[in-house]
């Protein structure tokens, strides 16, 4: 996150930067609230693992509320789901994430003898690299590479795909109808 914020200060004029920063702060406050509210579909520990996994893939995904984003879509009407997964696998999306989280934990225990949350940063990175290279040792279902692809998209959505994310990348949003909230 620090790297990204530094970049923003370089690219965008001061008043605009202030507004983004303020929004960033309020997003953080919102994320904090999110952490305290209970998830509807994911358990707290599942949500923590998923958020940590996504945060290694896209720095800032955890505070941006990625676990809450996924949980919100899994717990609502599937027709209103905001997840990319709906294009590619519409049946039992909750089961897909649940099994994926079990996969992360099983692989982490197998490789390092501890849960994913307790891994050192370089070990967490090694797990992601294994998913990219389809190189998981004991995690097979759902396909770890596909799980990576989907969870990466979720993380990209909440960090780069919102109005604040566009601004951070220096992309003018140009909305016809601005989103009522990021997701």
């Amino acid at each position: 996150m620090m790297r990204r914020r530094r970049f923003v200060t370089r690219m965008i004029s001061a008043p605009f930067w202030t507004s983004i920063f303020a929004r960033g702060l309020s997003e953080k406050a919102e994320a904090k609230t999110v952490e305290q509210t209970s998830y509807k579909r994911l358990t707290h520990s599942d949500a923590d693992v998923l958020a940590a996994w996504c945060d290694v893939i896209v720095s800032g995904a955890r505070p941006a509320g990625v676990a809450n984003f996924i949980d919100q879509s899994l717990s609502g009407d599937p027709a209103s789901s905001l997840l990319l997964l709906r294009y590619l696998k519409a049946s039992d999306m909750a089961d897909f994430y649940r099994k994926g989280i079990i996969g992360i934990e099983t692989e982490s225990h197998h490789r390092f003898g501890v849960p994913f949350l307790q891994l050192a940063q370089h070990q967490q990175k090694e797990m992601i690299e294994a998913a990219v290279a389809s190189n998981m040792q004991v995690w097979h279902d759902p396909d770890p590479n596909f799980f990576y692809f989907i969870s990466r998209s979720d993380a990209v959505d909440v960090v780069y795909g919102t109005e604040a994310g566009f601004a951070d990348l220096g992309i003018p949003y140009l909305a016809h109808i601005p989103p009522p909230k990021p997701w």
């Binding site: 789901s81 905001l82 959505d157």
Partner: peptide, 8 residues
């Protein structure tokens, strides 16, 4: 809504 997320 102009959002790749909401468009889904």
């Amino acid at each position: 809504i102009s959002s790749q997320i909401w468009s889904r």
